[in-house]
Design a protein around this nucleic acid. Structure first.
Lengths: 347, 347
DNA sequence: TTGTAGGCGTTATCAG
DNA sequence: CTGATAACGCCTACAA
């Protein structure tokens, strides 16, 4: 490994002088500094991260909290964007784990690694984050708000101000919501849903709102069954995410009905998957790329300009993504007739 | 941050003594050592990673090369397994990037971080790995063989010795293969396919083997169109992965045919997705969990027992996962009649 | 059994 | 403008 000492020897200078040159610090003539940097580059010198960290207590390393298995496409996409941005800015990223076996918390892990900042892409438990929250390590969270820290969130509540009007415009008035398990995000979405419905003048009966865990098609299938069994079933069902829809459609088809002829389905997330499925999914597409990028930029700002940085909550808007799973309901759709049948048979 | 010095003071001992106690080294009475460790734990002492790395030149950190966006489910699953295993063994993992902007290679990045080992989950370019290959950093690759290093591979070639007999048993004899773009894996699969077909006594015409990029449903759709246009189209098509099938089925349906009545489709990978889709996918399920775990264990062994470690190639077998997209073809399936029609109409 | 001291590669603070 | 030198936290040989 090539050290600064070797560079110094090669240049016939002291390590101190070389260090200044490398770090663009005053105390060395600009030309000589440039020459030193040239030589260092030729020698493929790169400062030893451990030594630098030890000395400066800054590691150029970001701790990532990502408990929610890498498999969830929404979070994977966000993480990918975070990574792209951090790479650009020359930060590394290391996964943090609260190794309970070792009796080490996230905070302690971050301290041990001297992380310059921590990004919470998805933390399973709130408690595990508390210690971090109260520390002075810069912290940015995604889709989760921790008091006093920057959060990048999708427009969970407001999204329904686009979704519901869209569905209403498509002719739906009996809209049901299958929502995920309780949590920040879920509560916002449910409230946003009710709000938007009220604004559109829709009455949503109690039994139209059901819970099903995120990413558990079986749960959604169950909820769907309950909805279909109602005296007055909905014409359109919202699901907690794009994968959950599959559970819903399976159940619908099992009952001899079909999507979107007999019932329409609307998802959430807008992963690549949603665009590939047949019928293609109508869903709310979150801007994961932007969320990740913004979060990374904020974190770096919080790190590099700590004095001036003011934590804030940044909302990244998504957009309705139309698709085959929602059809025009009342006005002369190609299957307007069929729908009449269905409605009558149910009433 | 609590340092070893503080622990020493608290114990009324020297740092040296404490260090020995913490590292289970001789030179301190067992009882006293235990007591020291107790105190350290109470103080929530954790050794500073940078300092330890600097001193020992071992970082307990694994460099991860994962160029292929986190979004590919197969690799995500493998990475997740790697991560679980490394966490258990108290290793951290940091993404490596060949920041070409900074003129830094993977190797240099790994050196800078003093990674104890490197895991290649998916490297985009072979060239970028060469330097690493020739270094003495322990290196394990997944689904990619680098001479002289341990590789964990799926049974790319041999898998077809299970797939083809399965399809033959299901009554198929006209089997086409849409394979991914050229590369190690693809070549093995194509050869394995031909091999298995020969063993089963199947004649595969040239035009039954087509290329479509991995994870590009459009490509697969195109390939499918070509296959359907043949004078004697296949009864079953193999696709490069589970996502690609969607391109195929879309094309099939666009032509007024349906899966699996008129044509059967078989995937590769066996992600969670494949089990959720309707019709469910018949596919070859790779054991991603095992691949990741084994790879991580090998790497750690290579690191911790360098002297004795012998690099090897480890094949992890997958299994045929039956599904709705392949039906019994010749013998009295429920739609045996329809199939006759289809075959006749094409001939 | 214990304490002391040197050094890992850097950066930063001093004299010169 | 330049070059020694001390420290960052830890480990380990060596001296006590």
């Amino acid at each position: 490994m090539v050290t600064i000492k070797m560079v110094a020897e090669r240049c016939g200078l002291s390590v101190g002088a070389v260090s200044k040159a490398l770090n663009h610090q005053p105390g060395i003539s600009p030309e000589k500094a440039a020459w030193v940097r040239q030589v260092a580059a030729e020698m493929r010198y790169h400062p030893n991260a451990a030594a630098r960290t030890l000395k400066t207590s800054r590691s150029k390393n970001i701790g990532i909290i990502f408990e929610n298995r890498l498999i969830h496409e929404f979070f994977s996409e966000v993480l990918e964007a975070v990574r792209a941005c951090l790479t650009e800015k020359n930060y590394d990223m290391t996964f943090l784990n609260s190794r309970e076996s070792q009796g080490m918390s996230y905070y302690e892990h971050a301290m041990q690694l001297q992380c310059d900042g921590v990004m919470v892409v998805h933390g399973r438990t709130r408690g595990a984050l508390e210690e971090l929250m109260n520390s002075d390590i810069p912290l940015v969270t995604i889709d989760h708000i921790l008091y006093g820290h920057t959060a990048v969130v999708s427009d969970n509540a407001d999204s329904f101000r686009k979704i519901i009007p869209y569905l209403v415009q498509m002719g739906h008035r009996r809209i049901a919501m299958v929502h995920g398990e309780d949590g920040d995000v879920t509560r916002l979405r449910v409230a946003g849903f009710h709000n938007a419905c009220r604004e559109c003048g829709l009455e949503i009966p109690e039994e139209y709102v059901l819970e099903a865990r995120y990413h558990e098609p079986k749960d959604s299938g169950l909820a769907t069954r309950k909805l279909l069994a109602l005296k007055e079933p909905p014409t359109c069902i919202l699901y907690p995410d794009d994968i959950s829809i599959l559970g819903g459609t399976t159940e619908i088809e099992r009952q001899g009905l079909s999507v979107p002829e007999d019932i329409c389905c609307f998802g959430y997330d807008g992963n690549r998957l949603s665009r590939l499925l047949r019928p293609s999914l109508a869903t709310y597409r979150q801007n994961t790329e932007r969320m990740g990028r913004v979060a990374a930029e904020e974190l770096i700002q919080a790190i590099e300009d700590t004095k001036c940085y003011i934590p804030r909550i940044i909302t990244v808007e998504g957009a309705v993504q139309p698709g085959d799973s929602v059809r025009q309901w009342d006005r002369g759709g190609k299957s307007g007739e069929e729908k009449q049948d269905h409605e009558l048979s149910k009433e």
